[in-house]
Design a protein around this nucleic acid. Structure first.
Length: 362
RNA sequence: GUGGGUAUAGCUCAGUAGGUUAGAGCACCAGAUUGUGGAUCUGGGGGUCGUCGGUUCGAGCCCGAUUAUCCACC
């Protein structure tokens, strides 16, 4: 459990990604409530570009703007350092992007990122880091980690300034630090120990699920986890598949977020308790079953696979919307099942039952 | 009716000078996707080259006929 100004978060939790203040696929904050979402996640870089943090602040902050009244986390733009690598330059002072929209110069220092997140008014702000690509040379990762540590201290300072401002949107906003270090366990551990000294309210593991194998990812979590504060939430950024999540919960992770359920849904890849299906497959043309017979979402309660396949083949907007509702419901429900299993002290059997099944294609 | 053009994959079209197993885009069938560029990438199936005949060692390509279709004119 983790307390925020907009309510408590029951952990482990999956945070639902609404990069630009909306869930792609046509879902609003009200849909988020219905699918059982606890935490909404938005992005600093994208909202900085459109509509701009000043607009959001003038509209009363992102909670009011998008009508989401629950806990909210904002990512710092650090992932765009990775995903938009060809459009940015990093210096000690800041990162400079060429906007992916119109090419204009976007300067973002650690202070800028935090100020933007303060204007957005999220409950949890993430530190600006460099998510390094994999593979990267040891020496590059070492230098990058040291800079990310310095940036974290600057973020910490800036957040203190921002939340104490008289017109702060969310005076209760807190900062999470982010561990980096690529696939090098010694750098990971060293970096984690350094940032743990700042005694932040939460810590994330970043830079994973960027090309390394699942085995490598688990090994790094096993190495880093003992050095994370035991009484603070641990957030594994950008992960993952249902099996990744179960495996990482068993390794002590509390927070997850991932674009996969929503992105896959938009491409007709849907999750079931038996595995993943591709609704565009011809074999569903006359299939009268719901996506998942055990699912409690309103899509499964009402619509056949055949109808959803038809909507996808016709590229109706409704196809994406219904598919995203199902996949996000599935993920949020998966976390609910995990929490219940933990409470009832049967997580190991839950893990054994589902880990070999959920990620397979059927 | 006359003259001319066209006919190649489900669709739109390439196909050099007559020379192995006829290609592309889209569509279709599949696969990938991990702090979201509604993106992208990868693979696959599918063609008696309108029909009949001729020339040639060899024809999608050249010749004749025929059918369909488009354009112009009467």
């Amino acid at each position: 459990m983790f307390k925020t100004p907009h309510g408590e978060i029951q952990t482990p939790v999956f945070m639902n990604v609404g990069t630009q203040g909306a869930i792609k696929g046509g879902l609003s904050a009200f849909d988020l409530k219905e699918i059982g979402c606890q935490v909404e996640l938005s992005n600093t870089y994208h909202l900085h570009l459109r509509p701009g943090e000043k607009v959001v602040k003038a509209m009363g902050g992102l909670h009011r703007f998008m009508r989401w009244d629950g806990p909210m986390l904002t990512d710092s733009g650090g992932f765009q350092v990775f995903s938009l690598a060809s459009r940015r330059k990093i210096t000690e002072e800041q990162v400079v992007f060429a906007s992916h929209i119109d090419g204009r110069k976007i300067e973002m220092s650690p202070e800028d990122s935090i100020r933007i997140q303060a204007y957005l008014g999220s409950d949890i702000a993430m530190a600006l880091d460099e998510c390094v690509e994999n593979p990267s040379p040891y020496e590059y990762v070492r230098v990058s980690c040291d800079r990310t540590t310095r940036w974290l201290k600057r973020c910490d300072q800036e957040l203190r300034t921002q939340v104490s401002a008289p017109d702060a949107i969310n005076p209760g906003q807190v900062l999470f630090g982010i561990n980096q270090g690529g696939v090098f366990e010694d750098l990971r551990v060293k970096h984690m120990r350094e940032i743990a000294r700042l005694e932040l309210p939460g810590y994330a593991i970043g830079g994973l699920a960027v090309g390394e194998t699942a085995g490598e990812m688990y090994a790094i979590i096993d190495a880093v986890e003992p050095h994370m504060p035991p009484d603070r939430p641990r957030y594994l950024m950008g992960v993952g598949t249902p099996v990744n999540i179960i495996e990482c919960v068993s390794r002590g992770v509390d927070f997850f977020d991932c674009v996969m359920p929503a992105r896959n849904a938009r491409h007709a890849h849907l999750y079931t308790w038996q595995g993943r299906i591709n609704l565009k497959n011809e074999k569903y043309t006359l299939n009268q079953n719901p996506i998942d017979g055990k699912c409690g979402c309103h899509v499964c309660a009402n619509f056949s696979r055949a109808y959803l396949r038809h909507l996808f083949k016709c590229e109706e907007m409704l196809a994406m919307r219904l598919a995203v509702i199902h996949n996000l419901w599935f993920y949020n429900n998966l976390m609910r099942e995990i929490r219940t299993a933990i409470e009832e002290d049967r997580f190991d059997s839950f893990r054994n039952e589902h880990s070999s099944v959920l990620d397979r294609r059927i």
